[in-house]
Computed example of a mutant assay.
Amino acid sequence: MIDFFTQNTDAILLKTWEHFYISIIALFLGAIVAIPLGIALSKTTTLAKIVLAITSVFQTLPSLAILALMIPFLGVGKVPAIVALFIYTLLPILNNTFAGMRSVNQDLVRAGQSMGMTTFQAIRMIEIPLAIPIIMAGIRLSAVYVIAWATLASYIGAGGLGDFIFNGLNLYQTDFIVGGAILVTVLALLTDFLLSKVEKWVTPKGLLVEK
Rank of each mutant, 00 (worst) to 15 (best):
Q173L: 13
A131C: 07
I147A: 03
N96L: 05
I87R: 04
P133E: 08
A131Y: 02
L90Q: 13
L195H: 11
A143W: 00
Q106D: 12
G159W: 00
L161V: 10
T119V: 06
I126N: 04
N96D: 08
F86V: 06
I123R: 05
A84K: 04
G168K: 07
L183T: 06
F164Y: 10
F176T: 03
L187S: 14
Q173N: 15
V104M: 07
V178Y: 09
F98A: 00
I132P: 01
T97W: 05
N167C: 05
T191H: 00
P133C: 05
L189F: 11
Y155F: 13
P133Y: 03
N95A: 11
V146E: 02
N105S: 13
D175A: 15
F193A: 13
Y155Q: 14
R140N: 08
I139N: 01
G116C: 06
G162A: 09
V198N: 06
L190P: 01
Y155A: 14
I135P: 02
I87H: 07
F86K: 11
G179Y: 00
Y172W: 13
G116P: 05
A188Q: 07
I126G: 01
I156V: 11
L141A: 12
I139A: 01
F86A: 02
T151S: 09
A131D: 02
A99C: 04
A111W: 09
E199C: 06
R124Q: 14
A111R: 09
Y155G: 09
L189G: 07
L108S: 10
G157K: 05
F193L: 14
L130I: 08
L194R: 08
R124S: 11
T151E: 00
L85G: 03
N95M: 08
Q173P: 03
V198H: 10
I135C: 02
R110D: 14
D163L: 12
L189V: 11
S103M: 09
L195S: 02
L161R: 01
I132V: 13
I82M: 13
M101K: 04
V109P: 06
A148I: 06
A143E: 06
G179V: 02
Q121I: 00
S154Q: 08
N105G: 08
A150W: 00
F120K: 14
D163T: 13
N167W: 07
I126L: 07
A153L: 01
L90H: 08
M117G: 05
S114R: 10
